[in-house]
Amino acid sequence: MSEKKTNRRDFLFTATYAVGAVGVGATIWPMIDQMNPDASVKALASTEVDVSSVDRGKTITVLWRGKPVFIRRRTQEEIAEAKSVKLEDLKDPQKDEDRAKDPEWLVMLGVCTHLGCVPLDQKGDYNGWFCPCHGSHYDISGRIRKGPAPTNMEIPKYEFVNANTIKIG
């Protein structure tokens, strides 16, 4: 016991454990990864939306990757309101300019960042969205103002294909 010498057997044990661990890992990983989004789910990555019929002050909801996306054509007052908010009043500080490329169009995931419910349009203390599940209030820029949600509603990747069409994803 006093002197521990690495011998041939120790080497064999260590090598066997190492190979065994790699083998177990390589066997388990496919079992875990099969639960991740599959190729057919990933293939539905983008959606094009015709927004020509959306009036000012109205929101449409479209489905993208199984989630609702709010597209709101904001009025001048709403844009002014969104821009006037001081960053220090925000829980998750973000400028309105960073959220809406074209200030008239707010495109965001209609998913509450708390636990994933769909917030209600034009409700709540901040004239924006209100989540009925656990009471999160969002402003007209979709930023969290009050309630348990930790962050602003997410802005997906999107672009204007032309004046009337938005491509999400």
Partner: peptide
């Protein structure tokens, strides 16, 4: 939706776990 989203509260890996649980977005 609400219960699986509980896992998104876990820092860093939370979102990944939720996507994994859903097998989608």
């Amino acid at each position: 939706t609400v219960i699986t989203n509980l896992f998104s509260a876990i820092p860093l890996v939370g979102e990944g776990i939720v996507t994994w649980l859903w097998g989608g977005y």
